[in-house]
Write a protein that binds this DNA or RNA. Sequence first.
DNA 1: CGTAGGATTGAAGCCGCTCAACCAAAGTGG
DNA 2: CCACTTTGGTTGAGCGGCTTCAATCCTACG
Lengths: 255, 255
Amino acid sequence: MSSTNVTNIKALKQACKTCGLRDLCLPLGVATEDLSLLEGIISRKRPLQRRDVIYQAGDPLTCLYAVRTGSVKTFVLTNDGEEQVTGFHLPGELLGLDAINDGTHPCTALALETASVCEIPFHLLEELAGRTPRLQHQLLRIMSREIQTDEHLMTLLGHRASDARLAAFLLNLSRRFGMRGFSRHEFNLTMSRCEIGNYLGLAVETVSRMLSRFQDQGLIQVQRKFIIILDVDGLREIAGVHGHESRQSEQVSGS
Amino acid sequence: MSSTNVTNIKALKQACKTCGLRDLCLPLGVATEDLSLLEGIISRKRPLQRRDVIYQAGDPLTCLYAVRTGSVKTFVLTNDGEEQVTGFHLPGELLGLDAINDGTHPCTALALETASVCEIPFHLLEELAGRTPRLQHQLLRIMSREIQTDEHLMTLLGHRASDARLAAFLLNLSRRFGMRGFSRHEFNLTMSRCEIGNYLGLAVETVSRMLSRFQDQGLIQVQRKFIIILDVDGLREIAGVHGHESRQSEQVSGS
DNA sequence: CGTAGGATTGAAGCCGCTCAACCAAAGTGG
DNA sequence: CCACTTTGGTTGAGCGGCTTCAATCCTACG
C-alpha cells in the first residue's frame, strides 16, 4: 500500500527528541539544541525481518546501530566454524562498538525477530562528539558500560554454576525489559534455548533442565518462550546477588 | 639519597614524546603539537610496591591510569567476599575505563610487582579529547579494544576446555610481551597460579597440572614463574587458533 | 495431516573440582 | 646461621556437575 510507503519515507529521518528510548540511548544528557544535530546524522533503516543481518563479521565499520524495536543477537564464528553468541541487544542499545578498534566488525549482528535500527555513520558521530561534550561523554559512558557488562559476564562464566548463570540471565533480561517500559515479570524470550546456552557457556539440555527446575521450585513459570517470574528474590539468591540489583548496569539518571 | 629525589621530581611530569610505549598507549596517532597538551595533564605517580593499591572498588573515578612499568591486576569482590580477577595489565595499557559509566570504580587495581603508572585526570582528558580529534579517536579505539578483548575472553570461558584456556593465555601474554620489546619466548609470570586460575575460571590445581602437561608434551618449559615457550604452533593448535595470531588484539599501526 | 526444528527428559561418561598430603622457596626470629 | 613458619606450587584420589548421546515430545507451519 502506498500509505505505508509514505510512512516509511517520513520515518527515515528519526527524531531522537520524541523517541521513548531517549534516556537509554545516545541522546541521554545531550542538550535539546544539540539533539537536532544528532538527529541530522541518524537515519532509521527500514524494519528488519527475523534473521536479517545488520552487519557481518569482517565488514568495514561504517555505522553504529541503535536498536529501536525488537531484539538482536551478535556472535562470532570460531575457526572451526561454530557460532559463539556474544550478546543479546534490546531497544536503546548500541551495536558495533567493538569494531572501532580496527575499523572492522569482529562479529555479526542478526535480528532475532522483526526489528528496526537507527543507523549512525561513525565518522560523523565522532566528529559531532568532538563538538558536543555531552555527546562525547555519553558515548564514553556507553562504551564503559559495555566493558562493565562484559566483565560481569566473565565472572559469571568463570565462576558460577549453571543455575546461577541462568538465574542471572533471567534477572538481567527482566531488568532490561523493565527499563524499557515492559513488564519485569512476564516476557518472551526472543532467543532459542540453544542460543541462551551458547551465550552462557552451557549445553542446551542444561538450560532446559534448569528452566524446568526453576519452575518446579516455583521460581518461574515457563510456557515455551513465554516466561513469568514468580519469585525474584529466590532467583536473586540463586544468582548470588544479595543486596543490590542483578548488575549488568544501565543508567537512567543523567550524568 | 638526594639524587633520587631530584630524579623523582624531574620525572613527575611525564614526557609522552620520549616514552617507549607511545605507540601502545593514548598518544598513538596524536600529532606532536597536541602531545604537549596531553603531557600537560598527565603526571607520573611514584613507583608502586608489590600489592600497592592503585584504586579500590567503590572509589570515585578521578583519574585513569596508564601502566608504565611492571604489571597490574584488576579484580572485583563478589558479595560472598571472594576475589574475581578481571584482567592483567602490562605497560601501555589503560586502567579504569570501566569506571566511566557511573563514575565509580567497579574493581580494584593492584600492583603485581614493583610498578609505576601515569595518572590522567579523567575530566581533563575528556575535555582535551573534545578539542583533539586524534586523541578522542584513540580513546574510543582503546575502549573498543577492551570490549573486543573481553568478548574474546568470554568465548574462551564459555566454550573452551582448560587446556585451550591456558594455551590461549600463554600465547596472549607472549604477544603482549613481544609488542613491548620483551622476548616472546621467555618471560616471567608476575601473577600466581591461583590468580591465573581465577582469571581463567579454573582451579589452581588444574592450572598447575596443565602447565606440567604442556611441559611433558614439550610445548613449554616451566621453572616456577619463568616460562619458556618451545612450540608456539603446538600451543596455537591447542588454543584452537589456526590461521591468525591468538587474538586479544592490540594495534601498533596508526588509525 | 505430516514434517521439521526446537525443546524436554533420561542415562552414561568424563572433565575439572574438591580434599588432602607433600614439597620447595622465602622469610622470620632466636 | 639455622629451626620454624608461611606462602605458593605440585601431585594424587575420589566425587559430582555438566556434557554427550539418544529417544521422545511438542508446536509451528507447510
